[in-house]
Amino acid sequence: MAIWSCTDDHCNADTESLLDATLTVTDETLNDINFVENLSIYSPEWSDSIYYSESGDDNVLGFVLSPFSDTTEIVFTSKDAPLNDTLFVYYQRDYTFFSQECGFVPNFEIDTIFHSYNYIDSVEIINKEISVDKNGKIQIYF
């Protein structure tokens, strides 16, 4: 019997450095239109969106900040809400060597967040440091 070990050269680890947004809706008119359940987010630089119904859970929706810029613009839109809200996240970034197969992964440290006020009341930064090991955390009040 031959025993050998083999490794492919592909990265099989989860290397996403996520920023989790906890969504708290206190506005009854937004609850009436299932604002969170119908929520999706996108960046103008993306070609797709992240849907809460697919990727969110327990009022938390995670996304990745741009690894190539110190600012990320994220638009919040909900199916039956006539207006959108936009979040501007300003941060510093560096890179950590993760493994020979996966290479480098970005780390972020949030400096500040600006937002529009169509539905968002306020944004609180809970955990400003984001890495593969630990997600960042913000709380958004609608």
């Binding site: 996403e16 960046s43 630089e45 993306w46 992240i50 996304f63 990745v64 690894p67 190539f68 970005p106």
Partner: peptide
Amino acid sequence: SANNVLIDDQHWNAETLTI
């Protein structure tokens, strides 16, 4: 130093950068 560092994400377009 590092170069040709490829950061690949399903939403952000893959780009290479130099450290």
